Computed example of a mutant assay.
Amino acid sequence: MRINRFLGVAVLAAALLVAPAPTPASAAVGRAELALRWAPIHYQDVDATGTHALGGRSDYITAVDFDGDLNGRNNWDNAGTGSMAAHAYYSVVETSTHWYITYLFFHPRDWVDHPFFETEHENDGEGVLLAIQRDGSDYGVLRGAVTVAHSDFYSYTPAGSTWTNGRETIDGTLQLQSSPHDVFTHPVTAQESKGHGLKAYPQYNIDGDGLVYYPSTVAETPSSGNDRDVRYKLVDIFAAGGLWAQRANASLFASLGTFAGDTTGGCGSGTWGCSTNSANAPWGWDDGNDLPGRGELASDPAKLVTEYFTIPGGVSRSYTYNPYSGAAAALKEAARTAPPTVD
């Protein structure tokens, strides 16, 4: 009996040494989980008219490598044959007071269906910055958003936000909507057809055919141009081999923050024209009429939100996680010397 008792104690002690410790209920969520929780429900208007519309495919969001390569100069050409599985890109940067999550929605074409006064271009990248206050909860509190519509930024706050007008006047209310695919309410954004400017819903809305995209970990392809439940997959901009790692890839980027694009494949035919190298990644986004510099929506969002909003208690300007900051000098120099783009 004594031997068995000692053996039992030894077995129990060994089990305690190798058993994994339980995860605390309050363990912090990861950046991917944070991005998924706050990712927008996204309304995309679709226009199927004209040859450049490809029956509506030109308004579907997709991955940058939807055609199987990282060559930005053949995306217009391959828009009719590449995968239209829905993807969106995100980056998270952090301070002690806030999380800042940038989302990029990519289209292979920025197109028009008439010959007057507007140009087309290969590639299109527009999106939104969300500012999340760290309040001790797992996911924080959404306080404000700034969207990218061509070369202009628009600011929004959700109902109940403590943030008010700053140097710029707030452009509207950021609505929240429940998703059928998770337990959260998400901010709601929308993009117009053709040029794909992005604002808070319903400042852009579906006019006839359109798609409603829901954040997910899977990438679905719309069943048609009028599919109201399509899941999109989130992709980390900072992932190994991801967009940020590819920033010096001359096949994908013409310069820092600007996608490479040319006039092949019929871009500009029957229209006013086709411009080159005219779409931007988040570190190239700029509103030339506003104070923050080119790319700072993504690379220095704490600075940007203090310009756009009045924030009780202010925000920390010291980043605890910001992979963009290692290239801050290059970003600023590129912003100083880069020609204007027309996204």
Rank of each mutant, 00 (worst) to 15 (best):
T81M: 08
T341S: 02
L34C: 03
Y308I: 05
E126Y: 00
G136I: 13
D262R: 07
A219M: 15
L176Q: 15
P158T: 03
T341H: 02
L198T: 06
K332A: 13
P301R: 14
G268C: 07
G55Y: 11
V29A: 12
A131N: 02
S269R: 00
G225Q: 12
L304N: 01
T23F: 01
T51D: 11
T258W: 01
L129M: 13
G266K: 12
R167G: 09
F184C: 07
D286C: 02
G160F: 04
D286N: 06
L130K: 06
N226D: 15
L7Y: 08
S269L: 03
A335V: 14
L256H: 03
S223Y: 03
W38Y: 09
R109L: 01
V342C: 05
H114T: 05
A145W: 03
D67L: 08
P180G: 10
A14V: 11
A219W: 15
H87W: 09
G242E: 08
D47N: 12
G225V: 12
S58N: 13
S299V: 07
E94R: 07
D262H: 04
Y90V: 03
T169P: 00
K194S: 05
R134T: 06
W272A: 08
Y60T: 01
S137K: 08
Y103F: 11
T49V: 15
N205G: 11
T81R: 14
A279F: 02
T164R: 08
E126D: 08
G266S: 10
D67Q: 04
L174T: 01
Q44L: 07
E33A: 13
Y232T: 13
V128W: 08
K233E: 15
S58C: 09
E220P: 09
S161L: 03
A53D: 04
G50H: 14
A335S: 13
D236L: 10
T97K: 10
H114N: 11
D47P: 04
T306H: 06
N322W: 12
D300T: 06
T49R: 14
S26C: 03
G208Y: 07
L174I: 03
A240C: 13
V46N: 12
L54M: 14
P282D: 06
D67G: 04
W38M: 10
L198I: 01
S91K: 05
A35N: 06
T81F: 09
L70K: 03
A279G: 02
F106E: 10
A298W: 07
D286G: 00
V46M: 10
Q191R: 14
V315K: 05
P301A: 12
S325V: 09
P282F: 01
T173D: 00
A338I: 09
E126T: 00
L16W: 04
A131Q: 00
P40R: 11
D113S: 15
G225K: 14
G55N: 10
Q175K: 14
A14E: 03
V141Q: 06
V183K: 15
N226F: 12
G80V: 06
D287G: 01
E333F: 12
D135W: 13
I311P: 04
D65P: 07
F184R: 11
D207R: 15
G293N: 11
T95E: 06
E296G: 02
W163C: 07
D124F: 02
L234E: 02
Q175Y: 11
D262C: 01
H52T: 14
H181Y: 14
D171R: 05
A335W: 13
G210H: 09
V148E: 00
